[in-house]
Each structure stands twice: as C-alpha cells, then as structure tokens.
Design a protein around this nucleic acid. Sequence first.
DNA 1: GATTGGCAGTCTGGACAGACGAGTGCCAAA
DNA 2: TTTGGCACTCGTCTGTCCAGACTGCCAATC
Lengths: 340, 340
Amino acid sequence: MQEDRRLAVLRAIVEDYVSTREPVGSKALVERHRLGVSPATVRNDMAALEEEGLIAQPHTSAGRIPTDKGYRFFVDRLTEIKPMTAAERRAISTFLEGANDLDDVIQRSVRVLAQLTQQIAIVQYPSLARSSVRHIELVSLSQTRLLIVLILSTGRVEQRVIELPVELEPESLAVLRSRIQHAAVGEQITVAANALGALTEQTDHVDRTHVAVIATALVEAMSNERQTERVVVGGTANLARFGDGFDQSIKPMLEALEEHVVLLKLLGEATSSDSITVRIGSEGPYTELATTSVVATGYGPGEEAVGSLGIVGPTRMDYPGSMAAVRAVARYVSTILDQA
Amino acid sequence: MQEDRRLAVLRAIVEDYVSTREPVGSKALVERHRLGVSPATVRNDMAALEEEGLIAQPHTSAGRIPTDKGYRFFVDRLTEIKPMTAAERRAISTFLEGANDLDDVIQRSVRVLAQLTQQIAIVQYPSLARSSVRHIELVSLSQTRLLIVLILSTGRVEQRVIELPVELEPESLAVLRSRIQHAAVGEQITVAANALGALTEQTDHVDRTHVAVIATALVEAMSNERQTERVVVGGTANLARFGDGFDQSIKPMLEALEEHVVLLKLLGEATSSDSITVRIGSEGPYTELATTSVVATGYGPGEEAVGSLGIVGPTRMDYPGSMAAVRAVARYVSTILDQA
DNA sequence: GATTGGCAGTCTGGACAGACGAGTGCCAAA
DNA sequence: TTTGGCACTCGTCTGTCCAGACTGCCAATC
C-alpha cells in the first residue's frame, strides 16, 4: 500500500527530473502529479527512498534526484517500453528503405536513431562471423601482383592487393580461381577458411606457394577483427544539448567517441537481438563515463545478433523513449539486412 | 621603418594571442618580444593598427586581439610555412604506410592530421573523375539477380545488386562479362561510361535489355556524386580543448561536422594540390562558423587534385603549423595513392 | 499506524558593492 | 619620433546579504 505509493513517487521523481533537469521537491511533486497525498507524506516517502539509496539530494535543503540505482529500479520495474507511434514507424522505414548499400544502411540507421532519441547514436558494422562467402575474384594486375576481392553475404566487400613471389601464368590463374571459388563460395566464413587451408595442403608443389599466399590473404580478410572494429557515430551535435554539468564530461565523451574500441566495449554486452541492454552511469568500467548511460541491443536476421547498435547519453535521459527507438531501429535494420 | 615595426607588433600580437588566448597589452608585448622600444611606442603602433582594422579590443581597457583581417594579413604577408621536423615527417610516413586499403589510408590521414595540428581534421574521399576501371565483375545470385562489382584504380570498390527483367543463362553471362570487361577495363571512367553506352547500342535485341540494365548500373556507380560526398572527420575531441567563448559555438560546429555537405563546401575551394587555401572566420558563407578558420589543400597524384583535406579550428589557431601539417599530410597521401 | 499541517533550520543562487589591476589614451618632454 | 607619466575606464574577483526552496521533525488528526 504505502510501498506502491513510494514507487509512484520514485517514478514521478525520475520523470520530473528527466524533463526539468532540476532536483525535484515534495511540493512540486504533488502539484505536477496527482498523488492524492500531501507534501509532508511525500517527504516521508522520500526519506525512505533515500534510505534505500534510490534517490539522493545534491545538498541539504535541495530537492531529490535519482541515483544510478534509482534509474536502474525505474528501468527494470517501473516502466514499459512505450511503442512507437505509427508516424514514427513510417518515418523509420521509409528513411531506411532508401538505402541501397550496406554503408548506406548503417549511415542512415545512425542518423535516424540520433534524430529519434536526440542522443548520440552508435551502430556497429555487422560481424562477419555468421556471414557466408558470396564470391571470390582474383584479378591479375601484373605478372606478380594480384588483386583479391572477397564478397560476403552481408554485402561487405573486402579487397587486397598481394605480391606473388613467383610469376603466375594466366592459365594457372584460371585454374586456381575456379578451385578456390569451388572450395569457398557459398560456405560460412569459418568453414571457408578451413577449406582454404585444406586446399593448400592438397596442392602439388608447383602452385603451392601461390595457393598459400592467396589463401592466407583471404583468410586474413575473412577474420572479423577489422570488420567488427568499425562503428559509426552520429548525433554528436546533441552533446551540446545535454548542457549542465555535462560540459565538464564533454571532453572524455568526445574522446570516447573517437576511440571506437571503447564504444565497441559499451555495445559489446548487447549480444542478443531480442533484449535491450541498459547500462546506467557507473555500472560500466569507464569512470570517465560515470554520468552517461548506454541503451543498446543487437540486430541481425535471426535471433542471434550479427551486430549491435544503441545510443549513449546522460544518465538523466528518457529511458522508455530511448529503449523504444533503439528496439524499433534494430528491428528495421534486421529486416533490411535480411532481404538484402 | 615605423611600418616595419608595426608589422612586427602585429605578428607579435597574433603569436601571443594564439598561445595565451588572452588579449595582449603593450607592456606584456615588450616583455615577451625584444622589440627594442617602450610600451608607449607600442601603444601608438597599436592605435594605428586598430585604425587599419587589423586588431581590436574586446572592450575598453583590455588588450588587443587580432581581427579576421589581421589574421589574413598575418597569413598572407607575415609568415612562412615552417617545414616539418624530420621526426614529424617520419611519424607521418610510417603511420600512413601501415595502411593497406583506401579506407585505411583515409582513416589514418585524418588521425595523423588531427594529432599533428590538435584541431579537427577532415579528409575527402578521392574523386572518381580521374581514376580508371581496374576490374568489373558480374556475379549471378539467382537467375534474375545479379551482383555487380566495380573496382577502380584508386582502390575504391562499388557494388550493386540489380534485378534483371528476364532470366539470364550462365553462358550468356560469361559472354556478357567478357564483353563488358573488354569494353571498360583499363579505361578512365568517363571513357568507360561512354564505351558501355556504345556497347548497348551494338548489342542485338536478345541480350540488349540485359546489357542496358547492367551498363546503367555501372555508369551510375561510376558517377562520382556519391563518392565525393564522402568525408571523414576526426579529432573532435580537440573541440573541448578550444575552450573559451568557443563553448557557445560548439553546437553549430558539431552540427556542421555532421553535415558533410557543409564540410565539402568548406574544403571545396581547395582544388589545386600545390597551394593551401586558408579561410578565416567570417570570410566564408556560414555565419555560424564566423569564429572558425579552415586550412585546406588538394591532394592527388598529379598536379590536379582528386580530393581535398584540411583542418578546421578557431580563428585563433597556429596558422603556420597547421598549414605545414596540412601540406605534409597531403603530399604523403598523394604519393601513397600514386603507388597503390 | 498512517497522514497532515506547521515550524524552525539549512543551503544555494543571484544581486550588489567595493577593491583591484590591467590597460589605454593623451600630453608634454626628450 | 620616442618616451615617461598620469588620469581614467572597465572587467574581474571577493565578500556580503537576502530571498526562496526544501527538508526534518513534532504534535495533532483521521
């Protein structure tokens, strides 16, 4: 009974603080929300909530603000992800469907996510791990230089120029090409990598060095390290909007945004494409980002994610709205990647 | 005689203001620079410089700061581009030579430029205009879906998936592939585009629709619109370093950095690869960027530029150093692109 | 036992005034 | 033409003060 009201008070505090950016007092609370009780009662509840560590006051005789723990409680127990409006859904889908290129899809996702949430959006490139080899092409540039092109089912293209230790005749190249294509095309990249290794073993000594060099380059191109390293960031202009004491944390924030490794770590936890990960303030490993929260989720055709996307902003953010936007964009990206 | 000293005073003011970020007074000036005259004399010179509109005081009884016109004068007449140290040259070349990919080259250029200048770096992707076709590949995905891959001499890869109106037999595909390759590979893209158009004309009516569709897609991929739209930005963390009244202009700045079209416009003036363009403060068309300057130049194998790169920062910046860094990086990028 | 009204106490933010200091402009002298 | 001196102007910094907002606690009430 009183417990219910206390939680209502917590919710009200979070909502008010998020929208006004100012510590919220008992009087203002009963005015803005119809709690049906007097400020004094609310004060008692506040004292209890503070006891539990869910809210705090920046200084004596100021209003209360939610703690990280308070936000956590709010996110976990007090809110539903509010569905997007029809107009928003339409906006997302039309905007994303204009893309005809993987790069384009990623770019547009970042934009729409930043636009919707008014936060900083981050989208990771899809991992190669679950994709398969669509095509391999070997192009002779000169007698000892070879251009290797690897095309994956996600639409990603990797290319390398390699130097061959020995000259390669056009006829041999044709044979090699067909053997390599036969071994790898259509396979998942892990399988393809193994097959290429085996191919080297099976080759007689004349062409063996060639096959070895080419296979090595291909396997290297398939290794998803470089790929998953790539993230795209957007909406940094929203940083200015954050204002407040956030000015001081703007520098580490900008630095973090350039350090893509950090971003990947932040996104990294979101591996499932059906749940949304929320990291609030100091829950993460980076002390510089103690005043920021991350809302992220995985995306991908199946249940398992091939990449992550999300937003990062001040702990004082509209969690329900952000979560809804992240989820919606992830779904659209998944379907688009599926049909491509 | 006095004129010479006045210019020395202007130079000293610019240098001091750039390094201290504070209006510089007559007394401080004679202390830091050995001008051989008294503060009073400097005051007279300052009055004259102010008369000419080269310096200004933010308020009465404050030191002087250079105006945009003052910076312009400084850049045009009072300074030489100071050459990079051997260590810096080595740092640039080793860092850039680690790249094995066009994307990589661009990424690294941005990083090194931002690092050297401590400003925000911008690098435009090379224009397709002067590049040639290295390879074209057609891959059948299904009987009516075709993957087209276009590889250019700059190392850029473009790919498209197209839907064919009529089924295409494997044998026909092989023929088409070789005809298209024969017509376009090795040619500059303008020539290649024409050749592909001609090819459509020469084709009998059975394969004609196929050729037309494929050629259209290829020509579209060759058109450099999308390509030159792409720029990469780095060093945004340096924004925080700018400090001062720059805080207010941080928002338009961030917005501009997201609007790549604006950046291209800023870089756009730098078309020659042997001269360095400097745009100071309100000289440009964007009133929001009245407190920023741009230092840019073109890069490219020959004299004519295939792309631009540069830095943007507060008008109060180290112009000689920035210009030197921009020039050095542009040269290295040019040579690397040349040998690739 | 939960709720309420009242009251005293505490703290911040903003306004205000005054001292300080850096710097200028001008003038007369060298 | 340069220099030293002097009066003057302002912005910045510091300290003080007041209004306002909020809390915590207590006694009264439902």
